[in-house]
Design a binder for these strands. Structure first.
Length: 253
DNA sequence: ATGGTAGTTTGACTA
């Protein structure tokens, strides 16, 4: 069995103890992190290696930043989408030609804002990249913080903004999935009001005012056997605003 | 009520 997880940690340096504790408990083979908020020269590689993980990472100062922790060494590491300086994308290949694309999709700030259009443009680049990737890698996983809630059940009832739920955002995600991917969380029976992110403000977590925006998309060639959100780290002191999501896959032999 | 909290580039930005 292969376990692959994603977690927007909102600063890896602050969250490192929580990340290492979580990895020790759940033993993911691959853990994709977003919003590491650390430049590559300050990436906490030694502590991660001491915990038994390799790491590929692409960071910048203060914002964004992505990393892939893995039990086995990665190959063919790619850190760039075309003409995209922000560190939001990381591709790597693992055993059996499994290709993993870790993404931190732009938030968008407000529908129809400049950042919103940047988000849609970024998603178009991702779609183009994923389409090409599927040609070379039938076994493809695209995971991370998508900053989009696919359906109305993926956002709490009091959500009063267009952001995360606007038709163009949802269409962009649907187009990506329709390349030949599946939202692994929805392959299984799940509790109602299952979310992966809750705003730090207004006690959103304790009122379960969240959204499910952290996704593990897997190509149909992969045999997914489970996908769960672990809310426990969100209850810790000084939590990330996101919870980790983990999917299990049957290993081919 | 344009609030509230958290993180990073100390203070304005991003989320």
């Amino acid at each position: 069995m292969l376990k692959i997880a994603t977690w927007n940690v909102n600063s890896l340096r602050i969250r490192l103890p929580q990340v290492l504790d979580w990895a020790k408990k759940f033993k993911p083979d691959i853990l994709a992190l977003q919003e590491t908020k650390v430049t590559d020269d300050k990436f906490p590689l030694e502590a991660i290696q001491a915990a038994g993980y390799h790491a590929a990472f692409s960071g910048e100062k203060a914002y964004n930043g992505v990393a892939l922790l893995s039990r086995l060494q990665a190959s063919d590491i790619i850190t760039d989408l075309p003409e995209e300086p922000q560190r939001r994308f990381l591709g790597a290949t693992y055993a059996n030609n499994l290709r993993v694309l870790n993404v931190y999709v732009p938030n968008g700030t407000a529908a129809d804002s400049e950042k919103y259009h940047f988000k849609l443009n970024w998603l178009k680049k991702l779609q183009d990249y994923a389409r090409d990737s599927l040609k070379d890698y039938p076994r493809l996983i695209v995971l991370g913080d998508f900053n989009i809630a696919s359906e109305d059940r993926d956002v709490h009832d009091a959500w009063d903004s267009d952001l995360l739920v606007s038709p163009p955002e949802r269409a962009a995600l649907e187009d990506l999935v329709n390349l030949g991917l599946r939202d692994t969380f929805r392959l299984f029976k799940q509790a109602p009001k299952s979310f992966s992110w809750w705003d730090h403000r207004g006690g959103a977590f304790w009122r379960n005012r969240g959204a499910r925006i952290d996704l593990i998309l897997a190509s149909t060639a992969l045999n997914c056997t489970a996908c769960v959100i672990d809310k426990a780290p969100r209850r810790l002191k000084r939590p990330s605003d996101h919870a980790p999501v983990m999917a299990s896959f049957k290993t081919t032999r």
